[in-house]
Simulated scan of single mutants.
Amino acid sequence: MRIVILGAGQAAASMAARLRAKGHDGPLTVIGAEPVAPYQRPPLSKAYLLGQMGLDRLLLRAPEWWAEQRIELRLGETATAIDRAAKRVTTSAGQLPYDALALTLGAAPRRLPAALGGDLPGTHVIRGLADVDALAAQMRPGRRLVVIGGGYIGLEAAAVARKLGLEVTLVEAAPRILGRVAAAETAEMIRALHLAHGVEILEGAPIQRIAGTTRAEGVALADGRQLPADLVVMGIGVLPETTLAATAGLTLQDGIATDAFGRTSDPAIWAAGDCASFPQPGGRLRLESVGGAIDMAECVADNMLGANRPYAARPWFWSDQFDAKLQIAGLNSGHDRIVTRPGDGQHGGSVWYFRDARLIAVDALNDARAYMIGKRLIEAGRSPDPDLIPSAPDLKALLA
């Protein structure tokens, strides 16, 4: 069986490794548009942007590993069409047949429209290696950075910029930062952390446009305020890469729709990672996380080889900002109760989310113990008494 994987990120690398580990001995090809072998993305906006990690440490596998595993790695090559009837992929370098095709195409960062200055020189997004290399070249002490968007990527960029000596203003259109992904209690901890390090945060501040003619010179807010800037980072989310799937006539639903096994509406085509949505209790879900990409890719690899194992998501995430680590287990959507527990340090603590008296998620800032215990409880389907969490002398007792 000839297997072709389109996309060369975390999901692709995990899937290819799993296929070989599970005994697939046939032709296996990974095609990626970027000119570099599969690499870790999370450190891009943290250690790599700070200059603390080089490209060699970003790579998911040593260069010789691909050859040893007899995996054909075709880089700098873009897939342009899928002929489902002929089972053939067309790329910028030619055509390639497949017996089974996997789409691990990831997601693309949103940009403001060109009419609002989103394409001006001096504007940046953070997703791939080239994005961060371009931004790093502009990160010099004393320069003024405006970050648009108060999600994790925007906050991480703001933290790195402050550590590098830039003056940073973060602008969030919604009433508060992290409004779509975390409780107000978590947002308050993160806000305090950034303010303590000198980041100016403007919430409830929609922007009008990025100002400038030949390059970005500032950000104009809807209320008339003008924020001067030498560079602008847009951290306003991502969109799943679905163009190729749409052109091929595959079903889309918040990404490339798959069944519980990772199979798309074409039984010979599979999908995994940030570009794929899958059924879960309560509706379809699409995860944007390293853990989700790895888990789903490995499950899909098993199913491509006949395992018929439904994918069960076990969501976990993290974000490094300044000297703090935010760790998240579970998904907090639909929560109806929140319980908080103070941490040991000035910037730390945990937020526990419940729905119908069931623990569904935990946010832990500088509190690895709360994260690990919360994660174990969620994965085991166990829920402690919410009233015991704030004052329990030892969180480990919640596992009893």
Rank of each mutant, 00 (worst) to 15 (best):
D99M: 04
K87H: 14
D295P: 10
G118D: 04
A211C: 12
R369M: 13
I269C: 02
A361V: 10
A107F: 14
P175A: 10
R176A: 12
V219N: 07
A246Y: 12
G26A: 12
A67E: 15
L101Q: 09
D295R: 15
E167A: 14
R2T: 10
E72T: 15
G235Q: 01
P109G: 04
D131R: 12
L227N: 04
A12F: 02
R286S: 09
P315Y: 01
G262D: 06
G117Q: 03
A102Q: 09
P384Y: 00
I190L: 05
F261S: 09
A8W: 00
L395G: 01
A312V: 14
P315E: 07
P43W: 06
A301Y: 02
M372D: 13
T91P: 09
A115E: 13
S45H: 06
L155W: 03
R57L: 14
Y152P: 08
D131M: 09
R376T: 12
F278M: 07
P228K: 10
I269L: 08
I378T: 03
G235A: 02
L395I: 02
D83L: 05
L75P: 08
A222F: 14
S391W: 13
G330C: 11
D274I: 00
V125N: 05
L239D: 15
G218D: 13
R341S: 00
V168K: 05
D387Y: 05
M304E: 13
Q69F: 02
Y48H: 02
I126F: 10
M296C: 06
E77Q: 06
G128M: 11
G23D: 06
L250N: 00
I210W: 01
G76W: 00
A85K: 08
